[in-house]
Amino acid sequence: MPVSLTASSTIYAALKASGVRVVSALPETWLVHLIRMAEDDPEMTLVRLAKEEEGVGISAGAHLAGVRSAMLMQNHGFLASVNGIVSCAQLYRIPLLMLISARGEFGERDPWQTEGGLVTRHVLDALRIPVDELGHASEVAHKVAQAQTLAYSASRPVALLLTRDLMWEEA
């Protein structure tokens, strides 16, 4: 599978280093290695979701209980989570680190992914969610740490977009 194992390992290590101990996720192709890493790590609690919005509740509960968490999801999962983000995470000032695979951008071959790619950043902006993208493995550790720092200082959701250049290695 051409999903980058190296990039996934780098992202996972950055999440651990930023203190994340609960990860909620719904599988998508780009996230398979990350989810397996969380599953195989005895120090991590992986919560497999039925729908991504549940993950906002999981993260809110973890935060109130004093545990750092992150959500792993596709951009369509982010779009499916919007009410939870607004009326739980933002209303209640929950630091929420969201790692979102940015499907539907340049290079996308799956026709069904293309519409979401057009709107994801606009929706993030409309929700006033600070966003940056992870484009290269060398910037992952720094950007994950910085995103987590802002999530906590602002007590708000923040997003990192996982790009095709980072996550996909053409066969």
Binding site: G57, G61, H63, L64, A65, G66, C88
Partner: peptide
Amino acid sequence: HFYLQHAMGLASSLGLGIALSRPDL
């Protein structure tokens, strides 16, 4: 007591997040 005054549906998810994070509670 925490009253989730919106986000309909997520109270059970939020409770699960607490329960998994803090098995002592």
